[in-house]
Amino acid sequence: MGFIGPNGAGKTTTIKLLLNVIKGNSDNVKLFGQAGNVVQNKQIGVVMDIPMYVEDLTLRDVEKAISSFYSNWDKNKYTDYLKRFGLESKKKVKELSRGMKVKLQIVVALSHDANLLILDEPTSGLDPVARDEICDLLREFVSDETKGVLFSIHITADLDKTADYLTFILNGSIAFTGTKDELFEKYMRVTGGLHDLNTDQKGFVIGYREHSTGFEGMLETTNSSKLPKTVMIERITLDEIIIFLNKGVKLYD
């Protein structure tokens, strides 16, 4: 599931709530259906924007430091994945590029056979090649139907490649949650002339914006019959959905 929303929407906050590194106002945060204040570490793998390993330790030391916390840690898997991803066990964490640090965190998750990967902006700040590699990894991970990924992201191209489900949040509330197809079925891009819509009809357009030659905005598909035939309704991109939803907050119920 891709977790999307503009900066400050609450993506990282939600992930931190799930991990219990910040306190929420209620006890409604549940992971694997269980409320509580301790993350079931065997089941999850976490990839944070800022890596969580001591920079001066080697990758071999990283394993020594954390493997004892996982009863299902597989030493061979760790070694194999390091090799596969081109990570040298003698290297220090600080010697790794950002992309490699993300890979290291994924390797750790794979080495204890996590069922759920939680990633906070795993591809931000990476070059296209590294982003593609990370997306491939995530796709491979979820190819096992018992496993899932929750990742916050704002690079929509990566989202298109990897996510089947999307949750869009705005100001800490869910604006949309469902499959990617449902999202594209739900919203359409609408454009037209400056005088095509009356005031009531403008109310149906999310993120209504006028420019010199006309208007543009986003429309819920169910409202398409309420607009005149003179306007143009077409498929919308993920970027546009994010932009228009951000402009015209319309929360999911």
Binding site: V38, N41, M48, M52, V54, I66
Partner: peptide, 18 residues
């Protein structure tokens, strides 16, 4: 010092350390 520098308090949470 190391925990603060390397985001280890988040790591502790992911390792289920109360």
């Amino acid at each position: 010092a190391s925990a603060e520098k390397n985001n280890l308090d988040t790591l502790y949470a992911t390792l289920s350390i109360k």
